Amino acid sequence: MKTTLGICQRKKRFETEEEALAVVARAEVTLRPYRCPLCRRWHLTSRTKGMRLPRFERERRAPPPDAP
């Protein structure tokens, strides 16, 4: 799905991916940051199909180092 100008203007914008990820980490729902092709800032989406997991989620899901 492509971000339209109307959607871009209604969404909160973050200057950096780190700022967006800080909000994602505190959210009670699953969110993913993405770089908007229109404003070149970061937005959040609840759509997750085909999107990469943030580092904190990859680390949370990784097995412990001593696991067989």
Rank of each mutant, 00 (worst) to 15 (best):
Tyr34Val: 12
Phe14Arg: 00
Lys12Arg: 04
Ala62Trp: 05
Arg10Asp: 10
Thr48Gly: 10
Arg40Asp: 11
Gly6Gln: 09
Arg55Gln: 13
Arg47Met: 15
Arg60Tyr: 11
Pro37Asn: 14
Pro64Phe: 12
Val29Ser: 00
Pro65Tyr: 11
Pro65Ile: 06
Ala62Pro: 02
Val23Lys: 01
Thr30Arg: 07
Arg10Lys: 13
Ala20Cys: 08
Thr48His: 10
His43Asn: 11
Arg35Ala: 03
Ala25Phe: 01
Ala67Asn: 01
Ile7Thr: 01
Leu21Ser: 02
Leu53Tyr: 06
Ala22Tyr: 02
Gln9Thr: 00
Thr48Lys: 11
Pro54Glu: 03
Leu5Thr: 15
Lys11Pro: 00
Pro33Ser: 15
Pro54Val: 11
Gly50Trp: 04
Met51Lys: 02
Pro64Ala: 15
Arg58His: 03
Val24Asn: 06
Arg35Tyr: 12
Glu28Asn: 12
Thr4Val: 11
Phe14Ile: 02
Arg55Gly: 00
Thr16Gln: 08
Met51Cys: 04
Pro64Ile: 15
Phe14Ala: 06
Pro33Thr: 03
Gly50Glu: 02
Cys36Asp: 03
Pro64Glu: 12
Arg47Asp: 13
Arg60Ala: 15
Pro68Val: 13
Gln9Arg: 09
Gly50Asp: 06
Cys39Ser: 06
Val23Met: 03
Cys36Tyr: 04
Leu44Ser: 00
Leu53Cys: 07
Met1Phe: 03
Ala25Thr: 06
Arg58Tyr: 08
Arg60Leu: 14
Ala67Leu: 13
Leu38His: 00
Phe56Asn: 01
Lys49Ala: 13
Lys11Ser: 05
Pro65Asp: 12
Arg40Tyr: 11
Ser46Val: 10
Gln9Trp: 04
Pro37Met: 01
Glu18Asp: 09
Arg10Pro: 03
Val24Ala: 00
Arg32Val: 13
Lys2Met: 14
Thr3Glu: 15
Pro37Ala: 12
Thr4Ala: 07
Pro54Phe: 02
Glu18Tyr: 06
Ser46Lys: 02
Phe56Ala: 07
Pro63Ala: 12
Leu31Met: 05
Leu38Phe: 00
Gln9Tyr: 10
Arg10Tyr: 06
Thr48Asn: 07
Met1Ile: 15
Arg55Tyr: 10
His43Lys: 14
Lys11Asn: 03
Phe56Asp: 07
Tyr34Thr: 07
Ala27Ile: 05
Met1Val: 15
Pro33Lys: 13
Cys8Leu: 02
Leu31Asp: 01
Ala67Phe: 15
Leu53Val: 10
Cys39Lys: 04
Pro54Thr: 09
Lys11Trp: 00
Pro65Phe: 15
Glu19Tyr: 08
Ala67Val: 11
Val29Ala: 14
Thr30Ala: 07
Pro33Leu: 03
Arg32Thr: 12
Ser46Tyr: 03
